[in-house]
Design a protein around this nucleic acid. Structure first.
Length: 114
DNA sequence: AAGGTGACCGGCC
DNA sequence: TGGCCGGCCACCT
């Protein structure tokens, strides 16, 4: 099988991964926050897209990334249906109906590495 | 090369 | 955060 694994080390994607990996345990952030840090707050959609590719990487805790409403929008893309929720609850985050309870309380604002 | 898609966000009702 | 519409940027076929 010709497993094509091209080097998609585009700055944009790599940048998103780097930020996502900086998310501390028990904390969550939003796509827009990451996008803003990257300097493309209007391209929040792209962040989600990058996350899709991040599925190949284990260093990217995509389950800690949700939309601004605290909704587990991407949980559908995980292996299971409630895997993302399980991971979040495992970190001490309350999740109700695919929605993070006290989202802003667990919200973590990412920042660019100096 | 062009068009369509997408794990979104902000503004408005 | 309750719902709808437009914008925005990179990736895929």
């Amino acid at each position: 099988m010709d497993l094509k694994m091209p080097t998609k080390n585009d700055n944009f994607f790599e940048r998103v991964y780097e930020v996502a990996r900086q998310i501390p345990y028990g904390k969550v952030t939003s796509y827009g926050a990451i996008a803003k840090v990257l300097g493309a707050a209007r391209s929040a959609r792209m962040v989600g897209w990058a996350m899709n590719a991040s599925h190949n990487l284990e260093d990217v805790p995509a389950h800690r990334v949700v939309n601004r409403s605290g909704l587990l929008t991407g949980k559908h893309h995980f292996d299971g249906t409630n895997l993302m929720q399980q991971l979040l609850e495992s970190e001490g985050i309350e999740v109700r109906e695919n929605q993070i309870v006290d989202f802003e309380k667990h919200f973590w604002m990412p920042e660019m590495k100096t």
